[in-house]
Amino acid sequence: MNALLAILFYLATLLFVVGLFHRIRTYAVTPAPLKIPTTPAPTTTGGVVLRMTREVVLFESLFKANLWTWGLGWLFHASMALVVLRHLRYFIEPVWAWVVFIQPFGIYAGIAMLLGLCGLWARRLFVERIRYISTPSDHLMLLLFIAIAVSGLMMKFVAHTDVIAVKIFFQGLMHFSIQPLPADTILVLHLFSVVILLVIFPYSKLLHAPGVFFSPTRNQVDNPREKRHISAWAAKMESEK
């Protein structure tokens, strides 16, 4: 089991990094031939950075759209961020002071994350419009996150696992040596779910995370009259004449 999970983690990380890098590269090299910011839009680069920060940190547009979706979505994402940061302790030695500090908050965040996920799933199941647009993968994606959150919380509140051993396992992985892992079913479920998440990330709607930074309606400066914007393929049309 140790060796299998270790190999899976290596493969999954490889797929995640390569897949994501490839996708981001595609976004970066695909031109945006026209100025299409959704106006009113900032007229300076600084303004665009602020707009993007509000979008990524506060989910500004979603806030305008629907308070329930915003509340549940923000709760889920913010809690998950805290939970991920809390997990840094498995990968660094010695553990940084601020990571030590957030440990207890990370527990509450785990619960909040689960609540957010359940709320989002309820919305998907019971709101007619959202049910109509949901594909099986939309439901499964939520289920996967719920599995990760529940198994994680269970190791805190129901069946403790040997976190020291887990840390040794991951420290070992980082130095290409396979160390023993506690043979707990819940732990294996938790880690296996994370492997799946890493693998599907670059090939699924989870691409919304890098995608938002490349969205022309949000990242373009509104200065079309002041500065000529032209893509390489469009500029070619001018030299052809």
């Binding site: 979603l62 759209a65 629907n66 979505g73 709101v127 959202i130 939309d138 709607k205 919304h208 969205s215």
Partner: peptide, 13 residues
């Protein structure tokens, strides 16, 4: 390209 990938079916729209 980005819009084909990024939608999460959140229903905001």
């Amino acid at each position: 390209k980005v819009y084909m990938d990024a939608c999460v079916h959140c229903g905001a729209c």
